[in-house]
């Protein structure tokens, strides 16, 4: 479209205007992160302590979110559960994205046999359904926090790799990369200074999406009983523990479900409502 050439460029700030939905979602994400960090200061009872004779107790002044199937305080368990859900997922997504993005950019720039081999290995990894992979690994290696984190990271590295590589391959065909090569620049400089700044926005959006996938998978595994093990519990495990309360609509099932939903929906909506400039490049 020729005519748009004539449009004066708006100031840099106005192009990155965030809308209200995005701000609300961002607030929810920040709130959960703060809860996860300061959980010990917020809990009202020790998470393992049975504090009520009533199991599946209702919401009350003492128990803001009712009590669970043993009569433990749900509010405290959900607050501490945030540590597991947010913490494990965040570490796993950091490992997955760091490895995926670094190797992806290298594969795109180096090309040749390195690219071919790495890409084939990643294709093989991605062809294993994620829940299945999780189940099989836990069956083989037993369930512990390091195993969980590493498994989740391994499952989501190939996706991150493919995403970063696809973008880096596009950038790599740009003339400014050719100019840098003709100048004699080394691989490290090209990746760090020429490619990375141009794929950062979509990579961040992908980071958010991948975080949601990991939260969902972790919750799913915990729900199946192979995730976080008792007496600790993440949100998925809390739903599983209290599933029997479902038939009488106990708050013990509702609140952990709500916790998961608010977190994941917020991240997804935030990404959907990112400023056009960032989204344009991530599609």
């Amino acid at each position: 479209m020729k005519a748009t050439d004539a449009i004066p460029v708006a100031s840099r700030r106005s192009r990155y205007k965030f809308n209200r939905v995005a701000i609300a979602c961002f607030a929810v994400i920040i709130a959960w992160t703060l809860v996860a960090i300061f959980a010990p200061l917020v809990v009202r009872y020790p998470i393992g302590k049975i504090v009520d004779y009533n199991y599946f107790g209702p919401i009350s002044w003492n128990f803001w979110m009712g009590t669970d199937y043993l009569g433990r305080d749900m509010f405290s368990r959900i607050i501490m559960g945030a540590r597991f859900t947010v913490g494990i997922s965040l570490i796993a997504v950091l490992i997955a994205c760091f490895n995926g993005v670094v190797v992806g950019m290298m594969a795109a720039v180096v090309g040749g046999w390195f690219d071919t081999i790495v890409s084939r290995v990643m294709d093989a990894l991605i062809s294993i359904p994620s829940k299945l992979f999780g189940l099989v690994v836990v069956a083989g290696a037993g369930s512990s926090l390091p195993v969980l984190v590493l498994t989740l990271a391994v499952i989501y590295t190939p996706g991150s790799y493919r995403f970063a590589r696809a973008f880096a391959v596009n950038i790599n065909t740009m003339d400014y990369i050719t100019v840098a090569r003709a100048r004699g620049e080394r691989l490290g400089y090209i990746i760090r200074s020429e490619i990375l700044p141009n794929i950062l926005a979509p990579i961040l959006a992908d980071f958010g999406l991948r975080f949601v996938y990991i939260v969902l998978l972790l919750s799913g595994l915990s729900f199946l009983g192979v995730g976080v093990q008792p007496p600790n519990a993440d949100w998925g495990a809390l739903v599983r523990e209290n599933l029997d309360g479902l038939s009488f609509g106990a708050p013990a099932v509702m609140f952990p479900s709500l916790a998961i939903a608010t977190l994941t929906i917020s991240v997804n909506l935030l990404i959907d409502n990112l400023p056009q400039k960032i989204r344009d490049r991530s599609e």
């Binding site: 740009m174 050719t178 003709a182 004699g184 020429e194």
Partner: peptide, 28 residues
């Protein structure tokens, strides 16, 4: 091959491309 040329040789021979849009890194 450009990778086997000395930095001095590279310096003395420069290339400029057709599309100014794609020749300049948009992030810098």
């Amino acid at each position: 091959d450009v990778r086997q040329r000395s930095r001095e040789a590279l310096r003395q021979l420069q290339i400029v491309f057709q599309y100014a849009d794609t020749s300049l890194n948009p992030a810098r």
